[in-house]
Structure formats: C-alpha cells, structure tokens
Amino acid sequence: MALTFTVDPVVGPALRDGLLELWTEVSNAGGAVGFVPPVTTEDIRPALLKHLAAMAEGTHRLVVGHDEDGTVAAAAVLALNPHRLMRHWVWAYTVMVAPGLQGQGAGRALMEAVADAARALDGIEAVRLTCRGGLGLEHFYAACGYKEVGRVPDAIRVGPGDDRDDITMLLPLH
C-alpha cells in the first residue's frame, strides 16, 4: 500500500486523534516507541501533547504518512538540536508504522521521507536516532543507510529483568 507523506501538516482533531491511535496501536503491538504494552490512548496522550507543543514552538517537525483511505499509517518527529555546536543535525523520534503495514516497504518509505524532510532544513547534515536493542531495529535502520555510532548496554528497562541496549544510529545526508 502506498503512503502519502506530508511534512508539517496542519494539526487538527483528526490528525491528533490519528497520531494517538497509531502510537497506541504500535505500542500495543510491541513497537519500541517509548511505552511497554498494554497502553491506552490516555497513557499516550501526554507524550503526544508534548510533541505537538514543541511543533507549535517550532522546535519539532512532523512527518506523517496517510494511507489511501486518509488514515494516519506512519509518522516520525524531527527535533531540531538546540545546542549551538550541534545544530547541523536533527533527532528523529517516535518513528512509527502501522503494524499491518510492516514488512511492506512502509518503514523504508517513512525513513526516506524523514531524510528528505531533514535535507530540506537549512544547514542540516545528518539525522540521528536511538533504537531499543533486542528487536533487530538496528538492522532495519542500517538497511535505510544509518550507521550504528554508539551503544549503551542495558540502558532501557522494559520490565523486571528485561534490560535492552540503547543504540544510537546516524544517517549522513550528503
């Protein structure tokens, strides 16, 4: 299924609710997007509102993919780096694809849209992200051109006795 990507769409109730539903669905399917299942939309809402507030302030950018029916099916947030010595790269956060679309190229398309959105920003030379170890995500990002540049063992605790590596990946844009 082909997705249509938009950067910095107007955020209204439909988009907000679509992002909330996607984030909840991805989290409950075991996606590594800041939560451990089970979660409800009310568990996710405060995190989404923080992203939306940062977008309104101009410090975050949203890349969203809609399917042919107009449903929010993929999304990622780009965070501008406020540190004066690191403004040449951006963070990619909350990278999500609807579970039903995984394995069909939607994730790769989202990462291409993220890279394109970053390239369109003045002075941006790289995209940096972190991913949770134990899920093989670093292999997916490597297939999208990212390189592993750091790893903190056992930095993410998803449950008692279940610690995962925090893996940093970097995509040079030139």
Rank of each mutant, 00 (worst) to 15 (best):
P160Y: 13
V39T: 08
L135P: 00
L173G: 00
P82K: 08
E125F: 00
E42Q: 14
A2N: 14
V33P: 01
P99S: 03
P46R: 01
L171G: 08
L78Q: 03
R84L: 13
L78K: 05
V36S: 06
A29S: 14
D67C: 09
L80D: 05
G145A: 03
M96Q: 10
L170H: 02
G100A: 15
A142Q: 12
P9T: 00
D166E: 14
H174G: 13
Q102D: 08
H66S: 14
T59E: 08
F5N: 05
V36E: 05
V33Q: 05
F5S: 07
D17A: 15
V77H: 04
L52I: 05
A79Y: 01
T168L: 11
R16Q: 09
V127N: 00
V77S: 09
G34E: 01
D116R: 11
Q102M: 14
D163P: 15
R128L: 07
Y146H: 06
A2P: 15
D67T: 01
G105M: 03
K147D: 15
P153D: 12
P38C: 04
F5Y: 14
L19A: 00
L121F: 01
I44C: 13
D67I: 11
M1F: 09
R128P: 00
P172R: 08
L78H: 01
V26T: 10
R132N: 05
L173Y: 12
K50L: 13
P153H: 07
A76F: 00
N81H: 13
L20S: 02
A126H: 02
L171M: 03
V33Y: 02
A56K: 13
P160A: 13
M96R: 02
H51G: 05
T6R: 11
V10H: 12
Y141L: 10
V11F: 09
V152Y: 15
P172E: 03
R119D: 04
G58P: 08
W91A: 12
G18H: 00
P37I: 04
L135T: 14
D67G: 08
L135N: 03
G105D: 05
D162I: 11
R119H: 01
D8H: 09
G159T: 01
V26Y: 07
Y93Q: 15
A54T: 08
V10W: 09
G107K: 11
A117G: 03
T4N: 12
L22T: 07
G134F: 10
L49Q: 10
R128N: 10
P153G: 06
Q104V: 11
E42T: 13
D17V: 06
I167T: 11
A74G: 07
C144F: 10
L80A: 08
A79P: 00
E21V: 02
D122Y: 13
L85Y: 10
G65C: 05
A53D: 15
R84H: 14
V26G: 06
Y141F: 14
G136Q: 10
W91K: 10
L48G: 01
